[in-house]
Design a protein around this nucleic acid. Sequence first.
DNA 1: CATGAATGAGCTTTCATTCAT
DNA 2: CATGAATGAAAGCTCATTCAT
Lengths: 205, 205, 205, 205
Amino acid sequence: MTTEESGVVADWRTYEEQRLPRVLAAALETFGEKGYHGTTTRQLAEAAGMSVPGIYHHYASKQDILFDLMMVIIDELIERSQQALASAEDTPRAQFDALVESLLRFHMHRRRGAMLSTSELRSLEPENRARYVARRDEQQRMLDRIVLAGVESGALSTPYPADASRAIASLCVGVASWYRPDGQYSVDTLLTRFLAITESIVGIR
Amino acid sequence: MTTEESGVVADWRTYEEQRLPRVLAAALETFGEKGYHGTTTRQLAEAAGMSVPGIYHHYASKQDILFDLMMVIIDELIERSQQALASAEDTPRAQFDALVESLLRFHMHRRRGAMLSTSELRSLEPENRARYVARRDEQQRMLDRIVLAGVESGALSTPYPADASRAIASLCVGVASWYRPDGQYSVDTLLTRFLAITESIVGIR
Amino acid sequence: MTTEESGVVADWRTYEEQRLPRVLAAALETFGEKGYHGTTTRQLAEAAGMSVPGIYHHYASKQDILFDLMMVIIDELIERSQQALASAEDTPRAQFDALVESLLRFHMHRRRGAMLSTSELRSLEPENRARYVARRDEQQRMLDRIVLAGVESGALSTPYPADASRAIASLCVGVASWYRPDGQYSVDTLLTRFLAITESIVGIR
Amino acid sequence: MTTEESGVVADWRTYEEQRLPRVLAAALETFGEKGYHGTTTRQLAEAAGMSVPGIYHHYASKQDILFDLMMVIIDELIERSQQALASAEDTPRAQFDALVESLLRFHMHRRRGAMLSTSELRSLEPENRARYVARRDEQQRMLDRIVLAGVESGALSTPYPADASRAIASLCVGVASWYRPDGQYSVDTLLTRFLAITESIVGIR
DNA sequence: CATGAATGAGCTTTCATTCAT
DNA sequence: CATGAATGAAAGCTCATTCAT
């Protein structure tokens, strides 16, 4: 299976250790731990194994690092979502299942990035925030469209498709905040369980 | 109905405009908007309508303000939860419904405080964090106990009670991040819907 | 004799030790010695006998200090010039002599400030520079007007009044760069000599 | 007529577009515009059409560039002055006129370099400054000697030869700060005028 | 010479906090 | 409580300079 976009993600279900440039990896680690404003450029540099000016050789500002990181993260989410949809059967339920599975997998494997993006949205400067939010809305609209289409076709059933869509997205995002890859449950176990929950929200039994 | 603790909350279902001392109200507003590290004491003072030394008259440090605020917030949550349980019938389902309803109501009416507590946990200094987490765990254990008891009694049915409990809490907390009191849905509408979802998670049909 | 403007300067001929707020005095000293860009805020603070944040309590930026200093300096020059003209007889020659004497006295007694203003004009940010230059042009136009009027009345005689005016101003400003108050010549000696030179430029014999 | 020194200057009255190595030309432009401390090596490199390491291939430091530039400038001034004296008649007045004319021409045609040298003297490190000042004093002494000799011979007449010499030098230097080659007056016009002024200072009528 | 990556030292500025009044 | 002045510590960022290629 191939996608037009990018070539970074081989298969939407497969997650390798995230490969990020040193600076972004350090930003993910430090911003995730102490927050954007709670992280100093010195800490960031140390985490990156660089000097402070070394950081500034690659990025013009701390803000640019945050923005780039968040864009890299959401770009991966959207690309995987598109691949999931492209590779699934073209029935409402299959499309729904694929997208939710993709969302869940992403928030399990890219936990830190997902949480960081949620909590540091406010730390983006207005222009950057607008660009990020536009991208995030793309992702949300993919789910909105599928739920709505499913309801219209009769495959899904909920009186409030928009609310359901948002609740499902919120549920998936929430997984990132407590799932531990080294916990007792496998990805597949949790997938099965949460897929069942989300399906119940849109009236699949 | 009475509780041992406090006397601030008249009825666990009823939410008035939150009554906070000026400093805490300002902290809720500013920390919520720009984060703890993203807020300066001057901004805090301005939001409180005070001078900076005025702030320090009430609190020894910015950290103390965050800690006090988060404790006030979680104390209210726990007190309401206890009242909800105390006022509900002593059946597993009634207890479950009451606690979830309380959780949901709280995260709808105290959205900002709930979100702030989640995102600024990392900004608490170790000792404060430990005390806060202990208190938050109390709340989580209330739900854990009820789910477990319900499963043991046969009223609830899930093979993974601990996971279910955590997923439910996560769902309720997540509501705070997108619910808008001025949106199109009433509290009761959302309550009904989310109660149904959480019930489905623990096998109530 | 009175002036409408200000009340700082008692008599245009009399110069006391310049009375500047601590920060401006330090700026005059340090900027004058090493230049604006060559002076660090730490050096400035040390010269002012303050801490660095102490400086920023009074001024928002290093640039603001430079601007304020230069405005204070030129304001004094202009005020003294106006007083000189007001106190002189209303004949072309008396007006010319008074203004040149004022210019010369100023550039002898306020040497450092005058030199600093000349050399740091380029260090002013565009908006500040525009405001300063407008003020400096006021001063130049006072001389231009007098020379022109003198030529028209026949009291002065030069075929190029504008050039003469600029050359005279330049001569007076230049005095600041080499006159030493502790040198061998008194103010009055130099005054006499330079007044003779400037008079010769405009054809007074 | 020839000089022992150099061979760069064909005739002391003739000024071609200044021919400087790329780095010095860029230094003249940038240091002149924003000052030595106000110019970064990157700006310098850009102005030179070179890379930053390219600059360091030619010069060991930014300070070395300033020093070299200032020495090149004053060397040209001194060489032209010597040629002017060598080519003039050996009478006090002719010698005086030649030297002043040379000084004036130089400060009209090499305006930027002259102003830069004046304002960046303080940016030279002590050792460099000492060497530069020694050179500049050579130039000043040429004028001092001629004025003194002229007074002694009776051709010139001023009670303060040293002051007069300094004032004349100051006047000539000052020309650089306001003369514009694209202005309304030709070099010759200004020469005539300023020569008359300086002659009046030393009592030539 | 250019490119690109890197850095020690230091820059301007800000922060939380304090103290005298 | 407010005002105003002050500060140690540190923040984000930049500088001149270097080195490998």
